[in-house]
Simulated scan of single mutants.
Amino acid sequence: MNQMTFHAPRLIEIGGGKVAGIAALLARLGLSRPLIVSDPFMVSSGLLERLTQPLRAAGIAFDVFSETIPEPTDIVVEAGVKRIAPHHDCLLAFGGGSPIDTAKAMTILAAGGGKMRDYKTPAVADRAALPLIAVPTTAGTGSEATRFTIVTDSERDEKMLIAGLGAMPLAAIVDYELTFSVPPRITADTGVDSFTHALEAYVSRRANAFSDPLAISAMRLIGANLRTAYHEPNNAAAREAMMLGATQAGMAFCNASVALVHGMSRPIGAHFHVPHGLSNAMLLPAVTRFSLEAALPRYAEAARLAGFAAPDDADQLAGAKLLEGLQALNAELSVPTPKQFGIAAADWQAKIALMAEQALASGSPGNNPRVPDAAEIVALYDGMYE
């Protein structure tokens, strides 16, 4: 068996209502003075009370930094670092992937100083000023279980991949009951994002014996439950399965790496402010078609696991059904093309060479079963527009 290194949080609490035990979790970890990192919607909607009420009941004092934005920037991270006070002994991230990613970047920047771009891969961000506890409220990014964060360099319009032990949460609470209020659009986008994590981890050139079972389980769970969670937001079984699948997918790609979809997705988000999960969904069918023959047995098995193909379908048929299934899924979930999203053709064309350059620079395309050159990435961007 090949040698491997596996990264994961020290502790993950999983289950409905688990967020009510936040005070006990902090006590178990020897922590008591958190800075909560969240977003304006979590505050205005009252959902943050699910976290703060049990803290108050336990007599735990906390501060809140809620100025995070949907696609974190270095400016927001720097503002967050200024809110870290000497008395804080941990960060408590509550929300979707953006608050969690912001908190990760905050603790890395607070530890090492400088600018966020100093930590962009291939740099290794292993230092953290404070331990992080992540509480996701969407079933999507898997950020609660990964050693990665994504931050936009606001001067260069570049989404930077930052990786290292400094970004790995100490602990996480995965409570599906926090996702009942997530609207259909975000349910769809985060759901496809988590499926992409699992699929890319499974076909990655860095897939391994530890990541494969997590990716396999995640594809089964997400394939069987994403449509139900989208159409029936209050379906507890579907929400629970999606939350577990998202965390498993996060652990899978944390240890096998994402590939071309994510490499191409980040520049779309940086230049055109398309939400990360949505840009992944836009790309997934085209990139899968591009990559299919280079890892046909794995893509075929993914199709069977996710329910796009029958268990006894031959690889070629299962691969074809995967392509059809991903297109049909995007249609059912109302995933727009870049054109339908409102991006002008001239603006798209003006950026695709730069986006291809940035995608390659991220390193993610190098994990793809079929490794593209810049011209092939440009052609994929060109073809997906309409």
Score class of each variant (00 low, 15 high):
residue 210 F to A: 15
residue 250 G to P: 05
residue 31 L to D: 03
residue 274 V to Q: 03
residue 273 H to N: 14
residue 27 A to K: 13
residue 150 I to R: 01
residue 343 I to M: 10
residue 158 E to S: 00
residue 345 A to H: 15
residue 265 S to C: 13
residue 61 A to D: 14
residue 385 Y to V: 05
residue 301 E to I: 10
residue 236 A to H: 04
residue 52 T to C: 03
residue 102 T to P: 02
residue 61 A to T: 13
residue 123 A to D: 04
residue 192 V to M: 15
residue 6 F to W: 15
residue 200 E to I: 10
residue 338 P to R: 10
residue 97 G to R: 04
residue 296 L to C: 11
residue 8 A to Y: 04
residue 152 T to G: 00
residue 284 L to Y: 02
residue 170 L to V: 08
residue 205 R to K: 15
residue 219 M to N: 11
residue 173 I to W: 00
residue 69 I to Y: 00
residue 283 L to E: 05
residue 113 G to P: 07
residue 247 T to P: 00
residue 14 I to W: 01
residue 169 P to C: 04
residue 282 M to K: 06
residue 142 G to C: 07
residue 82 K to I: 03
residue 204 S to E: 13
residue 168 M to H: 01
residue 7 H to S: 08
residue 52 T to I: 05
residue 22 I to R: 00
residue 189 D to A: 15
residue 184 P to M: 10
residue 259 A to Q: 04
residue 59 G to H: 02
residue 306 A to K: 01
residue 335 V to R: 01
residue 238 A to V: 09
residue 348 W to S: 11
residue 156 R to F: 01
residue 249 A to Q: 08
residue 136 P to W: 01
residue 55 L to H: 03
residue 223 G to R: 02
residue 319 G to N: 03
residue 202 Y to R: 06
residue 301 E to A: 13
residue 224 A to Y: 05
residue 352 I to C: 03
residue 293 E to T: 11
residue 329 L to P: 08
residue 63 D to S: 15
residue 161 L to M: 10
residue 134 A to L: 05
residue 191 G to T: 09
residue 296 L to G: 10
residue 321 K to V: 12
residue 328 A to D: 12
residue 15 G to D: 07
residue 159 K to S: 06
residue 292 L to A: 09
residue 321 K to T: 09
residue 138 T to S: 06
residue 120 K to G: 00
residue 265 S to I: 03
residue 75 I to D: 15
residue 23 A to L: 02
residue 245 G to D: 10
residue 177 E to A: 09
residue 2 N to C: 07
residue 318 A to Q: 08
residue 336 P to I: 06
residue 290 F to L: 05
residue 202 Y to L: 12
residue 84 I to R: 12
residue 336 P to H: 04
residue 32 S to M: 05
